[in-house]
């Protein structure tokens, strides 16, 4: 295999994992825009996505499509409950306290999953076979096509929702200024609830599409959440296009790091590049410098 082809192969596989990072990063951004908090339970949504899909599809033998939607609904409901319960009932609305509550939620979800699903890694069959397709001489798994396709459709649908529908516009208004949104009569609480629900759904999808490639277990949430968080920061925290670009780039860095340096160092390489970019352009790739009134 020539070096160029090898590089192409690495980039392809990087874009595959990068797509899931992008979905996780969008989840982070949605919640951040609505509330200003970093939801550390985002990674657990991804883990739950994989686990529920395995439960519905492999254990209860439901067909693929109903399992898919049941999983999305279940994890979305968990996202909704996280906001409706702990976050809304919190006595302090201090960002740091709310962030730590999500860490508490993340630990609890992980603990509960360990009891419910056991400690062994589990996997899902790929959505449509395992015969690789050949694209310009590089092998590409059908599952990767699914991942690209689903990610692109979700990003487009979300974009349409946020730009064209009234509810979407209301969500963006809350992100722009919570107080002004409240003054214009937008039900801010409901928008925040919606952002948690959406993040749950996005996490569920990310978990379902990546599990056939990477397998899952009760404790994968933390590292996946971390990757999504980094992707969001890399692209410019809170920016939708930034989340997508950040996710894809992080995936590619990781894959190049694994392929060209060593697979043991792939996380280190990804984070090193992330830190370098942060030092050079702190607001992230798509982030805008902000002016602040004193």
């Amino acid at each position: 295999m020539t070096f160029g082809l090898q590089l192409f192969q690495f980039i392809l596989s990087g874009l595959t994992t990068g797509s899931t990072y992008a979905l996780i990063a969008i989840g982070f951004s949605l919640i951040h825009n609505a509330t200003g908090i970093v939801n550390f339970a985002q990674g657990e949504f991804v883990m739950l996505g994989g686990m529920f899909m395995i439960t519905f599809h492999s254990l209860l033998k439901l067909p693929m499509l109903p399992s898919f939607f049941l999983t999305v609904l279940s994890v979305a409901a968990i996202g909704l409950l996280l906001e409706f319960g702990p976050i809304r009932r919190a006595k302090s609305k201090e960002i740091l306290i709310l962030v730590m509550i999500t860490i508490g939620a993340s630990i609890s979800i992980k603990g509960l999953s360990m009891i419910l699903f056991g400690k062994n890694p589990m996997t899902l069959p790929p959505f449509s076979g395992e015969t690789p397709l050949i694209l310009f001489g590089a092998a590409i798994m059908p599952q990767s096509i699914w991942i690209f396709g689903i990610t692109v459709s979700i990003v487009l649908a979300l974009n349409y929702f946020l730009k064209k529908t009234t509810t979407g516009k209301a969500m963006r208004a809350v992100a722009a200024s919570r107080r002004s949104a409240m003054l214009t009569g937008i039900p801010v609480d409901r928008m925040i609830l919606l952002s948690f629900t959406f993040s749950g759904a996005l996490g569920a999808v990310a978990g379902m599409i990546i599990t056939p490639i990477t397998t899952t277990s009760y404790d994968v949430g933390a590292i996946l959440g971390l990757k999504g968080f980094s992707a969001a920061i890399l692209g410019g925290y809170g920016s939708m296009p930034g989340a997508v670009i950040g996710g894809l780039l992080l995936g590619v860095f990781e894959s190049l790091g694994a392929g060209l340096i060593s697979s043991e160092y792939k996380d280190a390489v990804a984070f090193l590049i992330l830190l370098t970019i942060l030092f050079l352009k702190p607001s992230g790739i798509m982030g805008k410098g902000r002016l602040r009134r004193v």
Partner: peptide
């Protein structure tokens, strides 16, 4: 035993929700 992670997480959440100080 295996409930320790869950209970640790719940205690953390409850404290932060009701006693943010």
């Amino acid at each position: 035993k295996e409930y320790n992670v869950l209970i640790y997480g719940i205690i953390l959440m409850v404290v932060l929700i009701f006693f943010p100080q």
